[in-house]
């Protein structure tokens, strides 16, 4: 099984918003980062992966199984971390564990306490008194203690300080060492992904822009900078977005090689960060 999660032509419509015709695959043993601006459809997509929302059309497969027939089997193998605290906030971690643990066949109590110790989490303090970072650590400890094969996280790093964000990335690499765990997480803090993500899924206004490996992104996308006089209707075809200023232009290309052959040495071509790509594609993808 190469694809742990597979979405085929998935569509979900709401009154004022919709995600349309999403096709995406999450590859086994890798970190897939899910990026997009706030309101682009990240949470909706994740909710459909968790069967919290049912798509109007299309198919969602997890571990090659269908939720309609294998809901429990699928969720048995998923660990989840959400942006908001979904645990009973009046309870302490010990009581929450008493509620969650029996739900999983493979719950590992000693592993849970290892994480509690490692994250320095108090067991007898109500969750509502936890800081944002501590709540996230608690969610993570719970999510990892039943040996999940797929870890789904919705904006796990929002509201966390850079130190913990980096620690989290290290932890993920550590627990992925045996190659069995697959990680899918959404974020709008792209520096986390520049670091360790293997695949990037980019969603914009409910539509999938791309689903590429980090190498492909680096090979295809680039920033091109040069003098305004170089631009005309022909040369501009190489770009997905152009920003013009009196001092020159800065443009994003999704075809680095074409841009190189058109402009040669007359421009500066630099790698585009995920943030650059998100910024320049904010108006949606279209060729100028």
């Amino acid at each position: 099984m190469e694809n742990v999660v597979e979405l085929k032509n998935v569509t979900k419509k709401f009154k004022d918003f919709s995600v349309e015709n999403i096709n995406l695959q999450v590859k086994q043993g890798f970190v897939t980062g899910f990026i997009g601006a706030n309101g682009a459809g990240k949470s909706t997509t994740i909710k459909m992966m968790m069967n919290l929302l049912k798509p109007d059309a299309g198919k969602v497969n997890v571990f090659g199984l269908d939720y309609r027939t294998h809901e429990k089997e699928i969720k048995e193998r998923i660990g989840f971390v959400y942006d908001d605290n979904v645990f009973y906030e009046a309870l302490n971690l010990k009581d929450i564990k008493r509620i969650i643990a029996p739900a999983y066949k493979r719950w590992d109590n000693s592993l849970f306490y290892q994480y509690v110790e490692r994250f320095e989490l108090p067991l007898n303090k109500a969750l509502k008194k936890f800081s944002k970072g501590m709540q996230m650590k608690a969610s993570l400890a719970i999510a990892l203690s039943h040996h999940p094969e797929l870890l789904i996280m919705d904006e796990p790093t929002s509201g966390l300080d850079p130190i913990f964000r980096r620690e989290l990335m290290n932890l993920l690499q550590e627990i992925m060492m045996d190659g069995k765990l697959t990680v899918f997480f959404s974020t709008h803090i792209t520096t986390d992904l520049d670091r360790i993500a293997d695949y990037i899924v980019f969603i914009q206004k409910g539509k999938l822009v791309f689903n590429q490996s980090i190498d492909e992104v680096a090979e295809n996308y680039a920033l091109v900078k040069g003098g305004i006089d170089l631009l005309d209707t022909d040369t501009e075809k190489a770009f997905v977005h152009v920003h013009r200023a009196a001092t020159g232009f800065e443009a994003l290309t999704d075809n680095r090689k074409a841009a190189e052959s058109i402009f040669g040495d007359s421009v500066i071509i630099e790698p585009a960060s995920l943030e650059d790509i998100m910024y320049y594609l904010k108006g949606g993808i279209y060729h100028v």
Binding site: M50, E73, Y82, D84, V86
Partner: peptide, 18 residues
């Protein structure tokens, strides 16, 4: 009264229960 919260429903439905 506790369970009618959206968060609780998200939690329960994310766990291996139908």
């Amino acid at each position: 009264a506790v369970d009618e919260k959206k968060e609780t429903n998200i939690l329960l439905n994310s766990l291996p229960y139908t």
